[in-house]
Amino acid sequence: MLLFLIFLLACLCAGLTGYLFPTGDWYARLRKPDWTPPNWAFPVAWTTLYLFMAIAGARVATLGGPGATTALAFWALQIAANTLWTPTVFGQRRLRLGLAVIGLLWLAVLGATVAHWRVSTLAGLLFVPYLAWVSVAAALNAALIRLNPDEAR
């Protein structure tokens, strides 16, 4: 239980960037693709994903064994990249740099998914929705650059 709370605290710290750097009027004014998720979907998705990440990380840390160190290293990398994206895009309003950060995040989540799966099938499965959501977020980031070329400079 303590390990779960530690992983959850790390996720909550990453999630706090959404409160520290809200989307605001700048994001509201951007042209967005028709398939942009509704605003209410973001906190629902992230709350669920952070719970899944915490469960997966705690499970791997508890089980240990071959591959656990690699899985936890990927876990740390993905939460660090996750934490960087919001201040980059909404704090600095740097869409292109945000795309680079989310590219790193996507690779870290893919690595975490595979590495967690090797230790625990359940832990790996818990990362699959996260990989899907980050894929959508990366596509949205790229679409924002394309649709708002002046803002992307």
Rank of each mutant, 00 (worst) to 15 (best):
L3A: 07
L5P: 00
F7S: 03
F7P: 00
L9E: 10
L9V: 10
A10I: 05
C11Y: 03
C11G: 15
L12N: 07
A14M: 04
A14G: 14
A14C: 10
L16Q: 15
G18E: 02
G18W: 07
Y19F: 14
L20I: 00
L20C: 07
P22C: 06
P22M: 12
P22H: 05
T23L: 04
T23V: 11
T23S: 14
G24K: 06
D25I: 03
W26P: 04
A28G: 07
A28W: 06
R29I: 00
R29G: 02
L30P: 08
P33H: 12
P33W: 12
T36Q: 12
T36N: 15
P38E: 15
N39F: 11
W40D: 13
W40Y: 12
A41I: 06
A41D: 09
A41Y: 03
F42K: 10
P43A: 15
P43T: 14
P43E: 15
W46K: 05
T47R: 07
F52G: 04
F52K: 05
M53T: 09
M53N: 14
M53F: 12
A54Q: 03
I55L: 13
A56I: 01
A56F: 04
A58D: 11
V60D: 04
A61L: 04
A61S: 07
T62C: 06
L63P: 04
G65K: 08
G65Q: 12
G67V: 09
G67T: 09
A71Q: 00
A73C: 06
F74A: 11
W75Q: 11
Q78R: 08
I79W: 02
A81I: 01
A81Q: 06
A81D: 06
A81K: 00
N82V: 03
N82Q: 07
T83W: 04
L84A: 12
P87E: 11
T88S: 03
V89W: 05
V89C: 02
V89H: 04
G91E: 13
L95E: 01
R96E: 13
L97G: 07
G98A: 10
G98R: 04
L99D: 02
L99K: 06
A100M: 09
G103K: 01
G103S: 14
G103L: 10
L104I: 08
L104Q: 04
L104G: 01
L105R: 02
W106Q: 05
W106F: 14
W106R: 07
A108M: 07
V109N: 04
V109K: 02
L110T: 05
L110D: 04
G111T: 03
T113W: 08
V114A: 14
V114T: 08
A115R: 03
H116S: 14
H116T: 05
W117Y: 15
R118E: 14
V119P: 00
V119M: 03
V119F: 08
G124H: 02
G124F: 02
L125D: 08
L125A: 13
L125V: 10
L126D: 11
F127N: 12
F127Q: 13
Y130L: 10
Y130H: 08
L131G: 07
A132D: 05
A132P: 05
V134R: 05
S135M: 11
A137H: 02
A139K: 11
L140K: 10
A142W: 06
A142E: 01
L144C: 02
R146A: 13
R146P: 00
R146S: 09
N148K: 01
D150L: 09
D150S: 12
